[in-house]
C-alpha cells in the first residue's frame, strides 16, 4: 500500500511545477515597461539614453489658401538629422531631459538660362549643405498630480532651447556656394501641461503647450552684409494621443496634434512680417520594447494647414534604460 502511495506521489510531483506563483515586480522589470505602462516621468535614479533619426524632404506645402501644392522650382531640400537624448529621474515625480540635435541638411538646385535668339544656354547649380550641432534643449518634467492606478495624472513640462547651433551662413564663396545655418539663433522657452491616464492595455493623454521665441540677430540671407534682428512667432500646440498594446511588448501610438505659429518679424529698415502658420497632423507610431531597449518608428503626416510644410516627417528612435 505504501508503495502505491509512493508511486502516486511521485507521479503527481510535477503538479508543483505548474502551480501558481506570485508575480514579482523587480527594478529590472520596471525598466522594461512600455510607453503604455510606464509613468510619464522616469523613476528615481533611472537613466534613459537614446538616439533619434529623422528624415523629411520638401516636396509639398500648404499655401496661404490652405491648399496643398507641390513646390514648382527645381530645388530639392532634405533634412536627415540625429538627436541624442538623455533622460534622468531625479525623483519618482521629477525628471530632467537633455537633447543634443545634430543637423544634416542639404539643398540642391539646378536652374537653366536660355537665350534662344543667340542659341545659347547656361546652367546654374548649387549644392548647399548644413551639418553640425544644432540648438540644444533642456527640459524639466514634474508630476503635479502623480500617476496612480486608473487615475488621471497631471504633468508640467518646462523647456529651454539654447542657440548652440551655427546661426549664420558660413564659408560664403558665391551666391550658389555656401554652408547653410544649422541653428535658429535665438533662445526659446515653453511650458506644457499633460493629463494622462493608464487603463491597461491602453493609455491616453491630452496636452497643450505654449512656447515663446526670444529676439535674436543673424544673417537672414547669405548676401546680407550684417546681422539683422528678428523674432520668430510664438507658437501654441495641443494634442491628444492614444496608445494601445498590440501584444506585451509592441505598442501602437496614435497622436493628433495642432500647431499655430504666430506672426514673426524681421527688423530690416522696414520691418518684414512672417505670416502666421498652422498645421493639423496625425502621427502613428510603433514602439517595440525589447527588454530595456525601446525601438520606435513613427511618421508625422500633416493633414491640413496654412503657410506650412505638407511633407511627412519620419522618425526612428532607439533608447536604452540604465
Amino acid at each position: 500500500m505504501k508503495g502505491i502511495i509512493l508511486i502516486f506521489l511521485l507521479l503527481t510531483l510535477d503538479f508543483a511545477a505548474t502551480g501558481q506563483v506570485e508575480k514579482l515586480i523587480v527594478p529590472s522589470d520596471l525598466k522594461q515597461q512600455t510607453i503604455v505602462t510606464e509613468p510619464i516621468t522616469l523613476r528615481k535614479g533611472y537613466l534613459r539614453a537614446g538616439i533619434a533619426l529623422s528624415y523629411f524632404a520638401l516636396d509639398k506645402y500648404f499655401n496661404s489658401a490652405s491648399k496643398k501644392e507641390y513646390y514648382s522650382l527645381s530645388s530639392w531640400h532634405t533634412d536627415f538629422s540625429y538627436q541624442i537624448s538623455l533622460r534622468y529621474g531625479i525623483t519618482d515625480k521629477f525628471e530632467v531631459d537633455c537633447s543634443i540635435p545634430l543637423k544634416n541638411e542639404s539643398t540642391r538646385a539646378l536652374y537653366m538660362v536660355s537665350w534662344p535668339g543667340l542659341n545659347s544656354n547656361i546652367s546654374l547649380s548649387s549644392n548647399l549643405k548644413g551639418k553640425g550641432l544644432s540648438d540644444c534643449e533642456l527640459t524639466l518634467k514634474y508630476q503635479l498630480v502623480p500617476e496612480k492606478e486608473d487615475k488621471i495624472s497631471l504633468t508640467v513640462w518646462q523647456w529651454l532651447t539654447f542657440p548652440t547651433g551655427q546661426k549664420n551662413y558660413t564659408n560664403i564663396k558665391s551666391f550658389t556656394d555656401f554652408n547653410l545655418p544649422v541653428g535658429d539663433g535665438a533662445f526659446s522657452t515653453g511650458t506644457e501641461l499633460t493629463a494622462r491616464r493608464i487603463k491597461y492595455p491602453y493609455s491616453y493623454s491630452f496636452w497643450a503647450s505654449y512656447a515663446i521665441n526670444f529676439q535674436g540677430s543673424k544673417l537672414i540671407s547669405q548676401d546680407d552684409l550684417s546681422e539683422t534682428k528678428f523674432k520668430d512667432g510664438n507658437y501654441l500646440m495641443m494634442g491628444a494621443n492614444f496608445n494601445i498594446h498590440l501584444n506585451e511588448w509592441i505598442a501602437l501610438a496614435n497622436e493628433l496634434n495642432y500647431k499655430y505659429n504666430q506672426k514673426g518679424i524681421i527688423k530690416y529698415t522696414v520691418n518684414v512680417i512672417k505670416d502666421p502658420a498652422w498645421a493639423f497632423s496625425y502621427q502613428p507610431g510603433l514602439y517595440f520594447q525589447i527588454r530595456r531597449f525601446r525601438v520606435a518608428e513613427a511618421v508625422q503626416v500633416p493633414i491640413m494647414g496654412k503657410n506650412d510644410s505638407a511633407d511627412p516627417l519620419y522618425v526612428m528612435q532607439v533608447f536604452y534604460t540604465f
Binding site: Y70, S72, L73, L110, Y111, V113, S114, P116, G117
Partner: peptide, 24 residues
C-alpha cells in the same frame, strides 16, 4: 506623385519668361 522638371528662364531682347513644369 509630383515630378518637377528643371526650371528654365528664357531671355530675348524683349522677353524674360521663367518656366516651371510639374507633372502629377
Amino acid at each position: 506623385h509630383g515630378i518637377r522638371s528643371v526650371t528654365t528662364e528664357y531671355y530675348s531682347l524683349s522677353d524674360n519668361i521663367t518656366v516651371n513644369t510639374l507633372s502629377t
